[in-house]
Amino acid sequence: MSKITFGRFSPYNTIVHRLDARNKILMTILLLVSIFLKVNSWSSTLIMSAFMLLFLILFMLISKVSFIDLFKSLKTMWLLVIFLLIIYIFIPNPNYNPEHIAFYIGRLAINYDAFYQSGYIILRIVMMLMVTMILTSTTSPMDLTYGLEWYMTPLKLIRVPTHIIAMTLSIALRFIPTLLDETERIMKAQSSRGVDFVHGGIGKKFTAIISLIIPLFVSAIGRSEELSNAMEARGYDPYAKRSKYRKLTFSWADLFGLLLILCIFGAVLTLRTYDSNVMPVDFIYWIFKAKPLF
């Protein structure tokens, strides 16, 4: 379906596209951790976030990721913003300060902190979207699966069938666009028979969905049967030792990129530990948001 464009692989040939998939996965994870690590003091949080945002925008420009797609996905987030704001208004504030009160609703005091906290979370979610978008739109699904398979290699020691997992993943990924096309086709066929997928009450909608889901399942099951037959006919054996058609190679650009990301990660980690004088044990608190209330 042409409507779903978020994170779809776009086949440009930029330097980011040419990076090793394994490296890109690692870099993505490091960046995500850096984004979500909380630096406690106001000023360093602000500086760090601004720096990360600029860095990511630059990264998006280099890898030719569409900003329009990003904004489109942000448009649907306003509900999340309101939800977070409400949550933060009602959460007891650990560093309560009368000076921070913005205004009152009845007897309820609204702190500036509520806006600050929810805004900060939104910013981090936006940055997370940016990072994952860069990964998925610069790496073909196939390379992504090969990369994941490489990370799963140690699991082979405990007899986890990593190759089968990777194959299942890559087939699933491969069939997402096919099934979307199929959905579109069936929707059009049913629209020709007077089904209205947009308007109508719950009853009508339900029938409309049924008329879409059943044919979709029938064809998906038919397809999987055909595919498994075709694979068997070509002698596919999941337990056989296989050579690879695509080789992932680690280049100088990869090394440079990884070092850059490691620098950022290190900086965030340093700020995190020095700035707030907390031990890494606090990470666990941070994960569960279980900070003491006093």
Partner: peptide
């Protein structure tokens, strides 16, 4: 559009996929 689709109907390739 719905009225239009009553006057002009399409049968696509492999229409058997629309049966449910």
């Amino acid at each position: 559009i719905k009225e239009l689709r009553r006057h002009i109907a399409s049968i696509f390739q492999f229409p058997e996929y629309q049966l449910f």
